[in-house]
Design a protein around this nucleic acid. Structure first.
Lengths: 192, 192
DNA sequence: CGTTCAGTTGACTAAGGTCAATTCCCGTGG
DNA sequence: CCACGGGAATTGACCTTAGTCAACTGAACG
């Protein structure tokens, strides 16, 4: 698979597998380059693939009954995209995913993963690791919401992922923080 | 292992494994009966076991820098207890767990699970399933916090787990909802 | 009976929501 | 190059809800 070496490095580091195993995995992966503002997943269908953002930015969002869009996740380089709940349960996903920039994504399908597992039980351990990572990132987001106020959440984001604030329109950030654009604007004014 | 048949039924249903596999698992499990208001896990140590509540009620909580207790989870019959993040990462847990009633818990240690996996790869798939369940329950709690106001969260709890409201003091429930006892008292007054 | 602690209530504050108006930014077309 | 249009962001006025601090009530228990 055509891929610049630094991406392989990052994947090795993120997935904690050997070079040989990574090559084996990449053989069943595929890269898609999405344009800016492209809808890459629509709701009401089963999400049977997971993606790794090589570079770019996307948002994962819901549309509520009033037609308002609620950004559940904002993802940038090295983040994983998809709906892991739908991936494992086979139930339809309610989220949509769209790019906020031109974005390159490395995908793999659940079917491919299952075939790998058939061939070598190593990949079952790998699948468990993926699941553990999904759990840890859900817990991280949960803790953020449970323990911090919107203002503190904004400050945490500012500290941890300043690149998100540059790349992504404020209206999506406010939604991700669980507040209105007006409130975010006032928070920003307040903390100067 | 001594256990009333209905508990076996529940476990079969919850874990989705065969009777034989369940027996194999139970051989490495152990049951502990905790008294009411017993500290069953203390913080600052690695949680290397998971428990299944046969009957009773416990709370999983943090103590913040002001010495205030914050109930992260309230668990009753059929719920799983422990700190799955600590269990998989081997990092020290910050949570404490205490019983709110006399509580019977079925435990298994990580070491036992690893031994099972050594013997038969079936248990690796089982471990992945446990991980998936942990993810799904974290996501459920996350969604609850993200999409609903405290008042709506209280109404959801009232609807979904009325038994929790009977068993557990209000101060723990308010904390679990992310609000003060006073606010919960006012919410209750408001929704009559 | 008191003591104690959970729960409620009151008065006030602070933070976020809502609705509307205004300003800013940026791209497009004259 | 400038003027305009449209969406994003900000601001203002006002409302609602949760937090805080303090007082009070009530039930459990010795």
């Amino acid at each position: 698979m055509l891929m610049i070496p630094s991406v392989r490095e990052k994947l090795l580091n993120r997935l904690q597998i050997s070079v040989e195993r990574l090559e084996e995995l990449l053989r069943v992966c595929f890269i898609v380059t999405h344009e800016k503002n492209e809808q890459i997943e629509t709701n009401n269908r089963v999400f049977d693939r997971l993606g790794y953002i090589i570079n770019g930015a996307v948002r994962t969002y819901y549309v509520n009954e009033k037609g308002e869009e609620i950004s559940y996740l904002l993802q940038v380089n090295d983040d994983v995209i998809g709906d892991y709940a739908s991936y494992i349960t086979g139930e339809k996903s309610q989220v949509k995913i769209e790019t906020l920039l031109k974005t390159e994504v490395l995908y793999f399908d659940r079917k491919s993963m299952e075939q790998l597992i058939q061939k070598d039980v190593f990949w079952l351990g790998f699948a468990k690791q993926i699941s553990d990572l999904a759990f840890l990132s859900a817990k991280k987001r949960l803790d953020e919401l449970f323990f911090y106020t919107p203002e503190q959440r904004y400050l945490n984001l500012l500290k941890k992922s300043p690149e998100i604030l540059n790349k992504i329109p404020q209206k999506h950030i406010s939604s991700y923080l669980g507040i209105t654009p007006q409130s975010l604007s006032r928070i920003r004014k307040r903390i100067i």
